[in-house]
Design a protein around this nucleic acid. Structure first.
Length: 254
DNA sequence: TGAAATGTTATCGC
DNA sequence: TGCGATAACATTTC
């Protein structure tokens, strides 16, 4: 799940529960703790209050009056608010208990995890957040890339926040082939790509995910014999930089 | 049973 | 130095 829109949704979950004291931190699976022990995490946060959280790319940054909590959700993570009476899920790994409920960090695969106080280190190599990238920024960022457009868009050191689904969706909306060399796009293509990025991100943030709409690529890409929602042509698919990439050979000619 | 899954990182080769 | 491919991490699903 978690690309920029999902993490922005988690940020809003946390933002709705700032200002209340953290009464306890339950570490149910220390396998998601990165560079911090369960004891140190609890000692640092107990009695503190979450302040307004930030997001950069796929990172959620949660200051807590001194200590800073950093969450990354990998491919399967989430952060949700629950009544304490609600049974915990098998994949709930860390729980922050507040007076009126609790925040649960759930993650099946445990590919990423929970950090404390190393924001500068974790965020140092990230490019600008995808929501903050202007058309001019995008042109500049792509102009230095010799590799494929798909690879550049999903490289967090170039632009932070875009993942496999978003990158394909944006290319499809822009009618640009994701296998193109990133620095080869002309002015019209860069304009189309930037407009697609804005539109796809806006709608996805509103939906708190990349919506699986049938009139979007994301809604059909896993269908057997998937066809382009715009023109009905069978979609093409291959691995690019280790990720499955889907595009329409008619709308997005090479 | 094997392959693939929305992420990131280290490593190897060109 | 940059980039592509690959494996690895952990777990589930088709």
């Amino acid at each position: 799940m978690p690309e920029l829109p999902d993490v922005e949704g988690f940020r809003r979950v946390l933002a709705a529960h700032t200002g209340e004291p953290i009464t306890a931190v339950d570490v149910l699976d220390a396998g998601v703790l990165r560079g911090v022990t369960a004891r140190a995490l609890g000692d640092a946060l107990r009695g503190r209050r979450f302040a307004e959280p930030r997001r950069h790319g796929k990172w959620l940054i949660a200051p807590a009056g001194g200590p800073v909590l950093l969450l990354h959700f990998g491919m399967t993570g989430s952060l949700t608010w629950h009544d304490p009476a609600e049974p915990r899920h098998r994949h709930d790994r860390v729980v922050w208990r507040l007076p009126d409920g609790e925040l649960r960090y759930r993650d099946m695969r445990k590919l990423q995890g929970v950090h404390l106080d190393d924001a500068e280190q974790m965020l140092a190599d990230l490019g600008p957040d995808a929501l903050e990238v202007s058309r001019r920024d995008l042109a500049e960022l792509l102009s230095h890339r010799r590799g494929r457009l798909k690879s550049a868009l999903t490289d967090q050191t170039v632009i932070a926040g875009l993942g496999n689904f978003l990158a394909d969706e944006i290319c499809w909306h822009a009618r640009v082939n994701p296998l193109r060399t990133a620095s080869d796009l002309d002015a019209a293509e860069l304009t189309a790509l930037h407009r697609a990025l804005r539109r796809v991100l806006r709608d996805s943030v509103e939906a708190r995910r990349v919506p699986p709409r049938r009139d979007w690529l994301t809604g059909v890409r896993d269908d057997p014999g998937a066809a382009c929602p715009r023109c009905g042509t069978p979609l093409c698919s291959r691995r690019v930089s280790g990720r499955r990439t889907v595009w329409c050979p008619v709308c997005q000619p090479s």
